[in-house]
Amino acid sequence: MPSLLELQRQMQAQLWRPAGLDGVDGVDGLDGLHGARASLAPGASLELALRIGIYRNTCIGTLVNALRLSFPAVRRLVGADFFEAAARSFIEQSVPRSAYLDEYGADFPAFLAAFPPAATLVYLSDVAQLEWAVSRVLHADDAAGVSLAQLSALGEAAWPAMSFVPHPALSLLQSQHPADLIWRAVLEQDEAAMASIDPAPGTVYLLIERDTSGLAVRRLAAAAWHFTSALCAGRPLYAALGDVPDEQNHAILAEHLARGRFIQFRLNDPPSAACEAPHSPERPAAHSPGRSPEHLPGDAPL
């Protein structure tokens, strides 16, 4: 008699056998399910295989459906049948670790990039990557953004060493194809727009976030994107400015703050110090707010 764990492992093997994903293999494939097969009350081995097939269909169907929901543009680009076949192939090699299926599919874009039948659709993986970022943004937690007023209260001396925590519903993506244009045209079923897209490779820099209309996918200039990336990675402001010197940076930071894209800030030690200072938003201002130094937002237009 198998232990519960042995039985569950055997069932897993039966449900997840690559050769078995397309249907019932018959009796031979069930040798692994020793306990259940040997002790199954009425019914032949074929009956067992068919009944396991019911569970297999539901398991596969649940996961294919999760991928359908997360990658609707990809599905439209390749068609329902191709998508189902690609999804089934993906499921064989990438199993969900959790029942929260909105988290399932992070590796699907990389899978598509290496999936030979999709090789001619060179932009497909990039579109999938964008869709995954969209999905994560849509399902991320809500959070309140830090305001310019909160930061101004700390005084200009604190600014260079400040670092930020990005809103959970904010995502940055580089794409080697115009994935945003393709994504939008496909979902809006805009054939004219689709036809006018130049699919030639060239990097686009995208920012994905929730806004009042639901979801926004915006293009940024390369410098703006790299500066924003550095800030979202927690680089102190002086370091991000040093990484990506650009005269637009102060305006970019002002816009990020106005749109609530950062939810927390930390005060690090200035460049010359050895360790990081603890964060304290209530620390009194070292200088009164007033003159805005060159690289810091003051009353910059939103």
Binding site: Q8, Y55, T58, C59, I60, L63, P96, R97, A99
Partner: peptide, 22 residues
């Protein structure tokens, strides 16, 4: 029912043997 083994979520409500262990 059960649906997880070896860190894998199997996507369905699977049948339990009805034993003292279970």
């Amino acid at each position: 029912s059960w649906s997880v083994v070896g860190g894998q979520y199997l996507g369905d409500l699977l049948p339990l043997p009805l034993t003292q262990e279970a």
